[in-house]
Amino acid sequence: MAQDELIVVKDLNKSFGKLHVLKDVNTSIRKGEVVAVIGPSGSGKSTFLRCLNLLEVPTSGHVFFEGVDICDKKTNIDLHRQKIGMVFQQFNLFNNMTVLKNITAAPVKIRKMDPKAAEEKALQLLDRVGLADKADSYPAQLSGGQKQRVAIVRALAMEPDVMLFDEPTSALDPEMVGEVLQVMKDLAAEGMTMVVVTHEMSFAREVSSRVVFMADGQIREDRPARELFADPHDDRLKDFLSKVLNL
């Protein structure tokens, strides 16, 4: 295992009942990489991402995070999840808490951070995404784009080593996609390691360093973004790109 490999996925399989969703997936994520995962719907992209922090428990195979096999029953997954930020398609902000509480809850309760310091840091992060004035609002009072930016800040507040994005712009109105992508671009520019399941081909092409193309539960192509878009090898990928790029 190379030194700078943050996540290593080995022979990962996942079945839901008779449905075999992931078939022998092998890959690794290096520090500082921005990996876009693309593919037709139902190809297993989201399931693959959710296996990386064990929201989905693999049927067989291993996921190593910072050298530790998190699929091992003896591993305390809660400890590792603190270092793996996750952003969901449906935002999933805690509806019963204000924006500020959403962000500070985990640092205060889990990291035992001083509440005052946690609030200060939360406000700083909110300011960076342009939402400092929404600190006392409830999620129900925010637009989709605002919710997703808060969700990103909530994950960042735990100072994760990697951020997982599960179709972060798919539930947004078109005019709000840009503001969320901008936050993600900034994050990438700062060197955050990111794994992004996305349908935003422009993001995959311009921001990611590597693109993983999945179809039928398998990784069909896994190459640097520029190469993959300029010269796709796999037939399924060619077909997929011709469909999504000609829209």
């Binding site: 999840r81 930020g85 969901f88 805690f94 509806n95 019963n96 809850a105 889990i110 735990m158």
Partner: peptide
């Protein structure tokens, strides 16, 4: 209560008991 609420809490590192108390039960 939406399953996403639990998933978000667990993904941050909350234990299942904490998730129940802080996020699920109040809703």
């Amino acid at each position: 209560v939406d399953k996403g609420q639990t998933e978000a809490a667990r993904s941050l590192g909350f234990k299942s008991g904490q998730t129940m108390r802080m996020v699920v039960l109040p809703q």
